[in-house]
């Protein structure tokens, strides 16, 4: 007779069909054309990129599409040195909050093509796109951001983001 049962597998999963909704969809449509599309609040004029449905400050529906970027400025960043389950990027790497030019809200992305020790607040970066034939409605169309070599942005230009 085989051994006593000591443990059981109880996998659980849910199959969703996720809908991005009309506002995030205009952003996703932009990504399929290699553009960053945000939305402007008709009340306070802040530009959300990626867009959400309503302005967090004013509580009103966001209005017109606004093309922003593609370059941006690193506002804050984190050097990841610790491996974790499911990790796909080689450590150490830099996860940064990037304020895309023309947007008023930072977005998260990966910084590559430089030493982690060279990354700094205010560093100017640009997106690196996958080959066009691989584009999907996804921010993953951009493999990473890399330094542009431009002079750093003035601290005052992004200090309101911190």
């Amino acid at each position: 007779m085989s051994e006593d049962v000591l443990r059981i597998r109880t996998p659980i999963g849910i199959h969703y069909r996720y809908s991005a909704g009309p506002n995030a969809s205009s952003h996703l449509r932009g990504l399929m054309e290699g553009k960053f599309i945000g939305k402007r609040c008709p009340s306070c004029t802040l530009v959300y990129m990626p867009p959400r449905s309503t302005c967090a400050k004013c509580g009103v529906l966001l209005g017109e599409d606004v093309e922003v970027g593609p370059k941006g400025t690193i506002t804050t960043f984190c050097i990841v040195n610790v491996a974790f389950l499911g990790q796909t990027i080689k450590i150490p790497y830099v996860a940064a909050t990037i304020l895309i030019d023309g947007a008023d809200l930072g977005m998260q992305h990966l910084i590559q093509e430089c030493e982690t020790s060279d990354v700094r607040m205010g560093m100017r970066v640009e997106p690196v796109w996958k080959p066009r034939e691989e584009w999907q409605p996804s921010l993953a169309n951009i493999t990473h951001f890399r330094p542009t070599g431009e002079p750093d942005a003035d601290f005052d230009s992004f200090s309101g983001q911190l």
């Binding site: 049962v5 000591l6 443990r7 059981i8 597998r9 109880t10 996998p11 659980i12 999963g13 849910i14 199959h15 969703y16 069909r17 996720y18 809908s19 991005a20 909704g21 009309p22 995030a24 969809s25 205009s26 996703l28 449509r29 999907q136 409605p137």
Partner: peptide
């Protein structure tokens, strides 16, 4: 992905936990 009549993108999303536990 598919595109709904209102222009929204939709795509499958699977949330899955491969639990195993002692009894």
């Amino acid at each position: 992905y598919t595109i709904a009549p209102d222009g929204s993108f939709t795509a499958p999303l699977e949330l899955f936990y491969p639990y195993k536990r002692t009894v």
